[in-house]
Design a binder for these strands. Structure first.
Lengths: 387, 387
DNA sequence: CATTTCTTTTTAAAAAATTTAAAAAGAAAT
DNA sequence: ATTTCTTTTTAAATTTTTTAAAAAGAAATG
């Protein structure tokens, strides 16, 4: 139970005993006892009183701010990797964002590890203070075995977790990127107040994290949430997975970019073209274009929004969620996307079912994946802060 | 906890203490204590020894066979209603099957209640022995409120549970038909050994019961599993729900029947025509036709099987279940359907995800809904057998 | 075939957790 | 300033679980 208390105080500092007891479904005397033990060891401290609700004020507890443990996170996507170190207050100490690493490249795993090595020496991070390394990446990641089954057994990305753990001699944990984003929304974002939400991780592809009973739902082999390859329409566009009409082909940011480029070829003017050259990152360029107000970009975002909404209506029918949260990098243009998604949801779903489902846009911005990846380490290795 | 023990012994008689303790996640001494209390009251009895696994034989417990409590079940579908009474050994004592009651008719609820009244007097059922009445019917049934929200508030079917409870002065409970079928599969059928399965209730429409963590998943407003209205294809056929391309329109038994009738009109010969007149029940006629080997019927079943498989592949992608179980009345032609479903699943889903999902056909036959509906009463009212 | 060894169930004692009740600490009202 | 009302915290009583010991069989050994 001590570990549960620590995890709880990580996510939500400054809690009275009653609140912790309630969150862990344990009695106040039991929690009090454990809390006293942690106080003795200086792992937690008393910190002020909770606002009175009419009676005696409750003492609040939090993790000792003197604890200088560090959590490392590797947020990997198809083309870019971000590294961050953070403390036990979820504050980022150092970060290196958008290091261009193409996962399809032959030495992806070596480059990732070298980047981490550079990061550690550049910021003089002392290994013995690091609780663990969290890794999030796209693909069929089985968090139990630590393997990314999207890659063949001879690929160096197949068992990247193990490689990192061995090379740096620090415990490492890995999970799918969308599940990390979903967990971040559950603990810090829009899914906090809901026990049953769906988090759409909009990036190059379209990921889905399913939250059921306040927990990530993984399915029987750990691959639940493969939203991006459900058949969406009868078009003939071929998907990378080999099937036709997959949602990803038509309703992802990649699809929008493809369509914008088509429009430009046809003669339309769009600032996207220029921004792509400047940023050297297509997603960033698209987001900027939309924010500037580029009509071609906005139109195409509207189109994928509508198709995404069609896919989402399937999710609503099957899972009847409390919330649908648009998160991941794409959340930055969520305000533009949302109305189109909503239109399609209204069109394709039965009102009675969709009535209690609200669509919201993440406010965690680009930090969602990092927060979730860091939390992965807390979930698994927080016990390491006890002596 | 006593209630949990009773429920457990209902579903699975002849269990040793250790097995009960394990199933309820409680300690052996606690279970032993409660069991002794129940023995004293003659609610349960010791019954022989379990087969030895090497050491001391364990005493088995079961509900006292002298208990003469009765459970009533009303299994309602769009056109027919079945009534059954059963004892605490899941044995059906009396039943009245397929009473033709059209739910769209103006006095459906009155006819249902009169039928139940007749049933009670015909079989001389003493009310004070009845633990409760279970009701299962299609539609947006909110089991918490006991209301069927598919009907408007002024419809007599909207609050049929309450009406029955008041008229017969027996506690009543209601849930959606597909969820009852799923629960029956979980407790008595193909889903017993799996904690995460999907049960397809194939009848006039296509229902879905979702089993997650050994429990029925209901969603945020109790309407999860509306599988039948997900967009399946871009055809223009209009669904009763007002949308186009719904799965139900193309992949239900009703669809198969429609297609057979079309074929017959075009001049094809099918025994279905004759059987429909004989049985005066289209589903029964279709099932018979297939069993006899009628080619037109078999071809059309193949077609809906394939489309159903396409829909199922969406479920597999999103929920990555351990088992997909074809149940409900349609399970009787499951052997014919299964290969077509499998073909479509192979075609439309990513092998990596679908690999661990097995497709199975229910062996509960037509009793699935009755078993689940009866279990509804056990779940809610079993405590009534104490004193 | 009796005795020993190994397993597993059941009972008993010890430890831990929860539930209930009482005491302490504030806030609001008289 | 005192009383009343709330809520937190501590304490005592139950309940439950964990651990250990005893009982009952099955299988193996000589």
């Amino acid at each position: 139970m001590i570990v549960d208390i620590l995890r709880n105080l990580y996510y939500r500092p400054m809690q009275p005993i009653a609140e912790i007891a309630n969150a862990l479904s344990r009695s106040i005397p039991s929690v009090t006892k454990q809390l006293n033990g942690l106080l003795m060891k200086d792992i937690i401290v008393e910190k002020g009183y909770a606002a009175s609700t009419g009676g005696r004020k409750a003492i609040q507890y939090m993790l000792n701010e003197d604890l200088n443990h560090i959590v490392l996170s590797l947020s990997i996507d198809q083309f870019y990797t971000s590294i961050a170190s953070s403390n036990l207050r979820t504050e980022v100490l150092h970060s290196e964002n958008n290091i261009p690493i193409d996962l399809k490249g032959p030495e992806a795993s070596a480059i990732i590890m070298d980047s981490l090595e550079d990061f550690l020496s550049k910021h003089q991070i002392r290994k013995h203070l690091v609780i663990g390394i969290g890794i999030s990446m796209p693909g069929f990641v089985n968090s139990e075995t630590g393997l990314n089954e999207s890659y063949s057994e001879d690929s160096s990305l197949y068992n990247i977790r193990e490689q990192i753990e061995n090379r740096f001699e620090i415990p490492a944990v890995i999970d799918n990127d969308s599940r990390c984003v979903a967990w971040a929304e559950k603990k810090f974002g829009e899914a906090q107040d809901s026990s049953h939400s769906l988090v759409i991780n909009l990036n190059w592809g379209v990921g889905l994290g399913i939250l059921i009973n306040d927990d990530i739902f993984k399915g029987t082999s750990g691959f639940a949430g493969e939203f991006s390859h459900i058949p969406l329409s009868d078009t003939l566009t071929l998907c990378s997975c080999g099937k036709r009409g997959c949602l990803e082909v038509e309703a992802s940011i990649s699809a929008a970019i493809r369509n914008i480029q088509k429009d430009i070829k046809k003669g339309a003017y769009s600032i996207y073209e220029k921004l792509e050259l400047e940023h050297n990152n297509k997603v960033e360029a698209l987001i900027k274009s939309v924010q500037i107000g580029d009509q071609v970009a906005i139109n195409n975002i509207g189109k994928i929004g509508y198709l995404l909404g069609k896919g989402i209506s399937t999710l609503i029918h099957i899972l009847n969620p409390h919330r649908i949260i648009i998160s991941g990098r794409g959340a930055e243009i969520g305000q533009i996307l949302a109305p189109h998604i909503q239109v399609a949801v209204n069109e394709y779903s039965i009102p009675k079912i969709a009535k209690k489902t609200t669509l919201s846009i993440s406010t965690l911005h680009r930090s969602a994946q990092q927060l979730g990846t860091t939390a992965l380490v807390i979930e698994k290795f927080i016990a390491r802060i006890i002596n």
